[in-house]
Design a protein around this nucleic acid. Structure first.
Length: 431
RNA sequence: UCCGCAGUAGCUCAAUGGUAGAGCAUCCGGCUGUUAACCGGAGGGUUGGGGGUUCGAGUCCCUCCUGCGGAGCCA
């Protein structure tokens, strides 16, 4: 007996196949049982007709419960009345493991309940679609860099001294010393850029910020390219090329998933092509003032401001040259105006917020030493980082992109918690 | 951390200070094409914990716990 995946069934009409899977839902009508079976690749309506099957098969079809693991065997038929266009005319079936009352029913559930059952929630059609899109995005990211000869240099997760404020770092014990979970791979990537030229890292990062918003997780995945000899304008080009290509690829390859999510992809299409609008920080402040926001030059932008800055067209907006005072210590000053940093934020449309933050990095050893002092950072912890300037300093630039925010934007999610398989939130570490 | 909202059946929610209910899920029965099927029946409750007001509290007050939404900060 040929074992098939449900997604291949449209090409197997007329053949007799066996499907292994789980019962997603069932409906009945007299001598008919409609079993909706899912196998991870798709959903199949398996039709059991009383006169055509044995007593044993009929009893099993009648008694199989939601999420029982099972197999069905039969002939693939084309049928307009079936969701998906094809169905299985069941000749035989077996229950592998009968499922007791399943917690997640086809009706509505609350957020807390679903998060407590995240391990089961992942089986639901909507979550299934989201994870498929996340998977496609991740593969597209790696492919983007691979085709451009970037080398993947993953950064450590356990790091020694605190690089930025300790209040947002998760602390752990490391054989009698303190260690911290990484907030960013960037500092470790810069030395690697001197080794390979074009590098990137992609891994989990951790922020112990006690924030309770739809835009924050305490553990999230970030992809960070770092490029030797790259200047600020080229960095903006790279960010734009990167995001537009990712959007185009996911749009092309995940149509089925977007349909399940009922995502209006026409809202996403503008972001699949370049260019994206670029807005100098000063112009962004002026634009916000024009919209009635009480923002002064020198302020950072909050969530509402970001949403207001996003382009009505559906394209992400790039805000450039922020005041150096509100940005990180390692950012290169703008030669035209040293009070500004060669920093870039990319803001996704429709309120999905900042998806990219990046900059050209300080090239000068003296300036970097001064900045470390100005920020009251422990100098000795940064000696290795200063070596990047000490031993053959070079201009370089890079950015970080939060994967979950991009997934949330692509999928149209109202909260980041659905964009990652097992979300880690303030007060949530289970399952 | 601050501000606001909520906690009642397995789940989602009702119930003017006066006998705790519905839908879904579960179990039983019916139906030859269902699309979160439908129809009939049954079981299912220490109303988050503690204290208080009252003849009487799911409902009002105090307190703690848990969750949700938002702010700050960020990707």
């Amino acid at each position: 007996m040929r074992v098939a995946e449900i997604r291949h069934l449209p090409g197997l009409v007329g053949e007799r196949v066996r499907i292994n899977g789980w019962l997603y839902n069932s409906r009945s009508s007299g001598k008919l049982r409609f079993l909706i079976v899912r196998d991870g690749s798709g959903y199949l309506q398996a039709v059991v007709f009383r006169p055509q099957v044995s007593d044993r098969v009929w009893e099993q079809a009648d008694g199989v419960t939601q999420e029982s693991s099972m197999w069905v065997e039969g002939v693939v038929k084309r049928d307009e009345r079936s969701p998906g266009g094809v169905e299985l005319e069941v000749g035989d079936l077996g229950i592998v493991s009968l499922c007791p009352e399943y917690p997640i029913t086809p009706k509505e559930h609350g957020v807390d309940f679903l998060l407590n059952h995240r391990h089961l929630w992942l089986r639901s059609r909507r979550q299934h679609a989201i994870m498929r899109i996340r998977n496609e995005l991740i593969f597209a990211i790696r492919d983007f860099f691979y085709r451009r000869d970037y080398v993947c240099i993953d950064s450590p997760i356990l790091t020694p001294a605190a690089c930025e404020g300790t209040s947002t770092l998760f602390e752990t014990e490391y054989f009698g010393e303190k260690a911290y979970l990484s907030q960013s791979g960037q500092l470790y990537l810069e030395p690697a850029a001197a080794a390979h030229g074009k590098v990137y890292c992609f891994g989990p990062t951790f922020r112990a910020e006690k924030s309770k918003t739809r835009r924050h997780l305490t553990e999230f995945w970030m992809v960070e390219p770092e490029v030797a000899w790259m200047r600020f304008d080229e960095l903006c080009d790279l960010a734009e090329e990167f995001v537009s290509e990712l959007v185009a690829r996911v749009l092309e390859r995940c149509q089925q998933e977007f349909a399940w999510l009922e995502r209006d992809t026409s809202r996403l299409e503008p972001a699949a092509s370049r260019p994206y609008p670029r807005l100098d920080y000063a112009d962004a402040v002026a634009k916000l003032a024009g919209k009635g926001f009480a923002v002064n030059f020198g302020d950072d932008f909050g969530g509402d401001e970001e949403t207001a800055l996003a382009d009505e067209s559906g394209k992400p907006v790039m805000i450039t040259r922020y005041p150096a005072a509100i940005k990180a210590f390692y950012m290169e000053p703008d030669p035209q105006d040293p009070s500004r940093a060669l920093a870039l934020d990319m803001i996704a449309p429709d309120g999905y917020g900042e998806i990219i933050g990046g900059s050209e990095r300080i090239g000068s050893l003296e300036l970097l030493e001064r900045r470390i002092q100005e920020h009251s950072l422990p100098r000795q912890a940064f000696e290795w980082y200063l070596d990047v300037r000490r031993y053959g300093g070079f201009p370089h630039a890079g950015f970080g992109m939060g994967i979950e925010r991009v997934v949330a934007w692509l999928c149209g999610l109202s909260h980041l918690r659905e964009a990652i398989p097992y979300p880690r939130l303030l007060n949530r570490l289970y399952p």
